[in-house]
Design a protein around this nucleic acid. Structure first.
Lengths: 101, 101
DNA sequence: GTAAGTTACTCTGAAAAACAGAGTGTGTCA
DNA sequence: TGACACACTCTGTTTTTCAGAGTAACTTAC
């Protein structure tokens, strides 16, 4: 019934670190830079790059704490678009890996 | 019972084109360069690069036709190591994406 | 109260990966 | 025999990934 779509795995999400990052936020809702760093076991620079990639795709939103007494802290969460893309990515994966998962 | 392993998605397999290539060979058994090119909709150079990557990891074997009357033709199939890596990749994916797939 | 350390990033540069298109050799067919 | 297709391979460019150094704000230890 379909089989028409080209079956392409979203390059933004289908990458080792970003897949885990997105999956983590899907269940977790939100996380700080440090939490993500711990969860993913990546270096600061690397995490920064992946976050930037997700932000550029509008899959992720960064929310700085507006509280002045705090050191700047950013909370990251998936946007609606990001969640949609993730769900879509899962569907594509299921088709690509058919049966097997 | 586990949760100890670092949960890393095999970088050789977790890439848009290679995931599809490996999945295709898992069901299909084997394929020629041209068949893969059609299936994946990639350029020659790009396919070549991905094949090389899979070969370098010993996930893929290239078998040239020994028949002299034929134009050289290569048949690609996954090695035992490649199949194992793929199964393992699927397990990791399931853990990363938990429940969801 | 200030030096030392920690947290929370950001920036830079290097290394690796992904990709397109041109190139090569062999065969087919009008 | 000349034009074209097939089956790759090679080269060079762009993009991505990554580590580590840098910056700024806060927070103890002395």
């Amino acid at each position: 019934m379909d089989a028409l779509s080209p079956i392409e795995l979203d390059a933004v999400l289908h990458q080792p670190i970003r897949t885990r990052l997105a999956a983590f936020l899907m269940t977790r809702g939100e996380a700080t830079f440090t939490e993500l760093k711990k969860e993913l076991s990546v270096t600061d620079g690397n995490l920064d790059a992946h976050i930037k990639k997700l932000l550029a795709a509008n899959y992720l939103r960064a929310q700085k704490t507006e509280d002045k007494t705090q050191r700047t802290q950013t909370i990251y969460k998936l946007t609606a678009k990001g969640k949609g893309a993730f769900e879509n990515y899962l569907e594509t994966l299921k088709r690509v890996l058919s049966i097997r998962l």
